[in-house]
Amino acid sequence: MSFRAEHICYTYPKAKEPIIRDISFEAPDGCLTAIIGANGVGKSTLIKSMLGIFKAQGEVRLNGKNRREMSHQELHRLVGYMTQENALLTSLSVLNVVLLGRLGTLNLKVQDEDIEKAMQTLRLLHLEELAERPFYALSGGQRRMVDVAQTLVRDPKVLIMDEPTANLDLVNELQVLELVKAYTKQKNTATILTLHDLNMAARYADRLVLLKDGCVYREGAPAEVITEENIREAYGVEVHVHTSSRTGTPMLLPLAAVRKIDYIF
């Protein structure tokens, strides 16, 4: 289901300047789109604005249909959204946490179909052994993986994940990105991630959207967006970019911050 954001604009209450001025971009089917940009540029704000969690201006269209014309339930069924914020440490079992991802269809007496789907998703992520463990007893990486399971369990047509790899070690980071990529291709979802690791973004995303000053600064294939000049402008960092001989994607080596800091120790 193709996803299109048009002229999103959002100002925080009591703030003078809008944080997001005018952002439009498209996330096609079966395509992994990564939103990148410096800290505080409004990546998470953009996502919350697009989902209607923040009351923002502009339109979002899913297969051409305006989000505002959809019911809360309909939107929730189509879009899987994983927050950047970690869940509170609850004593709920992992299986129950995953079941919550199907909140729209859950009855007081849980249907076999919901349980089956939740277990299936856990197996897909190799988490089935954790099903009965309390959520608080998991490691940080396992919790994030359970979050992913919770997001995938309702078979979303649009997948939106805010920093899915935050706090993950290398193995888990690769696992999550591999999985999301495979999921996107197989189920033909429109997938939107925010990522802070530019090398990972270049390696896994089909399209990058680089934000700067509340606008889209560059948009396109990783090789077009990850250039020394673009990164200097958007991040204020001097980098060396070369194309990896193994993956064929741009690789980036940070050299120095453009804005020098006087270190006085």
Partner: peptide, 24 residues
């Protein structure tokens, strides 16, 4: 109150999480 049990359960994971799970 009891019929909203699942929504309250979502709330125990934090308000932000609950929003992302589709709870008003």
């Amino acid at each position: 109150i009891f019929t909203d049990s699942w929504k309250y359960t979502a709330l125990t994971m934090g308000d932000d999480k609950a929003v992302s799970l589709g709870v008003n």
